[in-house]
Nucleic acid binder design. Structure first.
Lengths: 338, 338
DNA sequence: CCGGTGGATGTAACCGGTTACATCTGCCAC
DNA sequence: GTGGCAGATGTAACCGGTTACATCCACCGG
């Protein structure tokens, strides 16, 4: 039945009049094949259009040559850039990337468990998966947590607390703002939480303890727009708005001026991430730069390290905590002229 | 060596004192097992923490229980929503989704070929993969092209030409604009191309043949911002700007007003897609609604259809062309008061 | 008492690769 | 002429599941 479906090693072996071992040697460029035989096998391979099955290879090598990455969802430039960072490393190592979005999936835990079965290592965005589950998975394969902290896992993150504290201090010290609010839900994911705490720390540094409650919203641009409309409807705006990420800030930026409220005239605004849009919108966005691409690339490097030389037994990763630098980028939206 | 690594069927069989066939019957809920035996096997399974290997299952069933989706990249709400549509169908069918971003990958063709090996069906966004390659893959597995046309493939799309023509006509007929420009590179992907041609058709309908060249930019918000700065620098704005998607429109919206140019006062603007942000920004965005989620869901349904009952031999899909409805949504940014 | 029946279980082949080890060949040195 | 060796190739087991078919056994009716 060589006719149905894709040809297999045994089809090639029969066609070329050799054994499967020899065919395998040819496909793997094993030098222990006589030139004439190699030539004959190669012709059969070309004639039948043979490609080794990924499934068979995975089974034999006990390796999938695939890296899994778990995110809440695919929306927004942060995740897009993170994934690109991961891919840049994986692709260079000849490893495929498998992206899983957990947002809106009730069966996230199960989906991650399945993903773990189809991959050699996992890169997980903080706040997407229960840490107990992750710790268990991490016992049998490399798992790297991005933008989160853990006693048991390898982590890669930036210091959101310090960055947020610094940019908030700028608003208070340089521009003299005193009524500041935070936009973004400071619970759930570790990143927004750290940023909120940095914001609070800066306020306390300056004796501003009466800060209003954070505006609890999701992290996509549309929530920035919704928040902007609410703020406008409330009447008086705060002096400055510290957003959990740039996306939210753009949502505000695309809404408030249209409602007749000037930025930064009536209200200053700062973001977090330093998106590609941050330096281009008007006013340009004051924000905290974080190396998102590098975050993904570093996580991928750590995750793939134990898998590197073919033979390694995919040992679990030791706990570790790598912190990448952030940098405050002052532009126009805080009120600074340029 | 039952101690190292995950337990297999044979480990369970030994532990429970039965054959592998019986273990397999228990895991598959085959009724042909005596209750007492089933109980004993189940205890061994629980004791050793056994889960059938996805790899073994795939090999035996010749099926991956995985659907692949190919996109240019993960940026922007359009793709996020498309993926969610695909996932909604796949997850309900107990099928995993594997997302591949081809953007910035020099080896896109190879990556897609690999993906095809690890999945049962493919959903491909138009303009990401060479059609000849797709046609070849489609001979051995179901492939659905989203937002593209083809003589040889099953396709699902919306009529971007008609939608774009309609919204452009609105700008001309209702608001009397005569100097219109199109934002977005009208080559490469089929979607922007169709929208550009619809735009041109509307102009010709009204005898406006002197339209300027399209502003050739990518399709992310940042390019909207760049275009806005260029337009502002040029001096006089067109009467109206027709954007290839909402993202671009928001880039413009987050930039031009800050440069002192009012929208829609000095220039009207319309988008395409009807993002979640479209009704929230200010001015609210006039745009063409397209059922993005449904686009993904429909594509997934078609792709998975031949795979549905376990036994089917994954027959290639017959060529087909399904067109989903679009609807023009008039809001404020075209100049209409609300 | 014996043959037939059907339910429970085991054996072994198969899915598509890799690879340890065995075998076969030709050549060389003694 | 023969033993040893090395290089080329084949055989068969293995990775982790499923499943056609064989086997075993208890029970039944004649």
């Amino acid at each position: 039945m060589a006719s149905s479906g894709r040809p297999t090693v045994r089809d090639i072996a029969r066609h070329a009049g050799v054994s499967v071992a020899t065919v395998s040697r040819v496909t793997r460029d094993d030098p222990k094949v006589a030139p004439a035989t190699r030539e004959r096998v190669q012709q059969s391979i070309d004639a039948l259009g043979y490609t080794p099955s990924a499934l068979g290879l995975s089974l034999a090598y006990q390796r999938h040559h695939t890296l899994g990455i778990v995110l809440p969802g695919l929306g927004g430039p942060y995740f897009a850039e993170l994934v690109q960072g991961v891919e840049s490393v994986a692709v260079a190592a000849g490893i495929a990337v498998n992206v899983l979005g957990t947002h809106f999936r009730p069966d996230a835990a199960q989906a991650v468990t399945q993903l773990a079965q189809r991959t050699d290592a996992l890169v997980v965005q903080g706040g997407t998966v229960d840490q107990a589950l992750l710790a268990e998975i991490a016992q049998s394969m490399p798992v790297v947590l991005v933008a989160g902290t853990s006693d048991h896992l390898a982590t890669v993150r930036t210091d959101g607390h310090a960055g947020s504290r610094e940019v908030t201090s700028h608003l208070v010290e340089v521009h003299g703002h005193r009524r500041l609010r935070f936009l973004g839900a400071p619970d759930g994911s570790p990143d927004p939480t750290a940023r909120y705490h940095g914001f609070r720390a800066a306020l306390e540094d300056h004796g501003l303890t009466e800060a209003g409650a954070p505006l609890r919203f999701g992290f996509e641009a549309k929530y920035g727009a919704i928040a902007a409309r609410e703020l406008d409807a409330e009447g008086d705006l705060p002096d400055a708005l510290v957003c959990a990420n740039d996306e939210l800030a753009f949502g505000v930026l695309a809404t408030l001026p249209g409602l007749g409220r000037s930025i930064p005239g009536e209200m200053a605004i700062v973001g977090f991430d330093d998106n590609s849009l941050a330096g281009l919108a008007s006013p340009t966005l004051t924000t905290v730069h974080q190396p998102t691409f590098e975050l993904g690339a570093t996580a991928a490097r750590i995750a793939l390290e134990p898998t590197r030389d073919g033979a390694a037994p995919a040992v679990p990763l030791p706990p570790d905590d790598r912190v990448l630098e952030t940098r405050t980028v002052i532009r126009e939206s805080c009120g600074c002229a340029v």
